[in-house]
Design a protein around this nucleic acid. Structure first.
Lengths: 213, 213
DNA sequence: TAGATTGTTAATCGATTAACAATC
DNA sequence: TAGATTGTTAATCGATTAACAATC
């Protein structure tokens, strides 16, 4: 019942939220009830003001001298990220990477519920991976539409990634998490996040090369 | 023989380099010889000045009106990232994610040469994945030291990640690419890059939740 | 030459950090 | 109360974008 239930927030802040959350969950296991962002900041090795601003984004308010009430804070952060009610997702590409993602138990706690995998390899179609069915990729658009799936995860190779993305769009999917090492050509309004391994690799290589001097 | 062979560069710039490189390689296949950063910028949908500044970091100079000589540019960018001579690496955790990474052909062209995988599952030790041997994790420190390995890739679960990191450090590894969803506690001088899936997931979830309003 | 493009300096923008009054 | 902590406003910092002279 807040005035501004969901406003746009700085992406770096959103990215930090899971780190706070992990720390908060650990504190809850320790039966902590009140938590100051001074403490949180020290634990995560970031600036206290930054933590305070980030937490303020979730709409929660703390009490001077005591901090934030932990259960409320956890709920506020989860609600802010949208992890309070997990979203169903489809994954295409049941190779090793896809299998790894299908098997990640953690996703459920991270607002993501992968309900099925897709592939066009006939030897894979009809099997299950981590209790999730692997279906024929051709069936994706129809199923996605009927199940109102909004998130698609691409774990196919570079060659097929764009075709898979198009397939997802035709099924009404509006957010794509792309693990293929190619830029995708998508409409402006589609939410796209690339898991940019080569970018990370470049940072590591560069630092290593520079440190050798 | 430049004055400043390797200076610190903005991380966002370094992250963009692989995108330029991919585009440049494609242009080379098309037999293009000269390339302007105006063109590159348009193709990659970024600001031309940004491209110019990024490319300037590599030390290359272009010619007004013509642009940059493609072969030189590619070499300059690769050299800047440190991809001109690939670096050997060890990977620990031969699960699905580890197997996927061991099998990525693309890494060789990205300055990374994973020479072996490690695990402590006896059924995996002694096998090969993508022609790479899976060895007993206990042997890592000694081997890493003898082979002067500097890069370690962690693809084990959250529980074991810190232990694996410590193992790597004891083997003299100085750069860690961490795929486990836990923050690692490492000395300041160790190069660390986390593949932060939950952060990405938060960004997607948040955008999706916000778009629903 | 004219005009496109480079290289560089200045302006803007956004995120982080610092400062400080309000408060329990 | 005294002191720690919140919430907010101002300053800093770094990256991106704009402006423009130099150049082939």
């Amino acid at each position: 019942m807040k005035d501004k239930p969901l406003r746009s927030a700085p992406t770096p802040s959103v990215r930090r939220m899971p780190r706070y959350l992990r720390c908060l969950h650990a504190l809850r296991s320790d039966r902590v009830e009140w938590i100051s962002c001074t403490f949180l900041a020290e634990r995560l090795n970031v600036d206290p003001t930054l933590v305070r601003k980030d937490l303020a984004l979730t709409g929660i308010t703390g009490k001077p001298k005591v901090g934030y009430y932990l259960p409320d804070l956890i709920m506020a952060v989860e609600r802010f990220i949208g992890w309070d009610n997990p979203e169903d997702a489809f994954l295409v590409g049941a190779g090793h990477l896809g299998t790894a993602l299908l098997g990640f138990e953690g996703f459920a706690r991270h607002g993501l519920n992968i309900v099925a995998g897709f592939d066009n390899d006939p030897t894979k179609v009809g099997t299950t991976v981590a209790d999730k069915p692997i279906l024929d990729a051709a069936k994706l658009p129809d199923l996605a539409q009927r199940m109102h799936i909004r998130i698609g995860i691409i774990t196919v190779g570079a060659r097929n990634a764009q075709a898979v993305a198009d397939l997802m769009l035709s099924g009404g999917i509006t957010a794509i998490w792309n693990f293929a090492p190619v830029p995708l050509d998508l409409p402006e309004d589609v939410i796209l996040e690339n898991e940019d391994l080569s970018g990370t690799l470049a940072v590591i290589s560069r630092r290593l090369a520079a440190s050798g001097i």
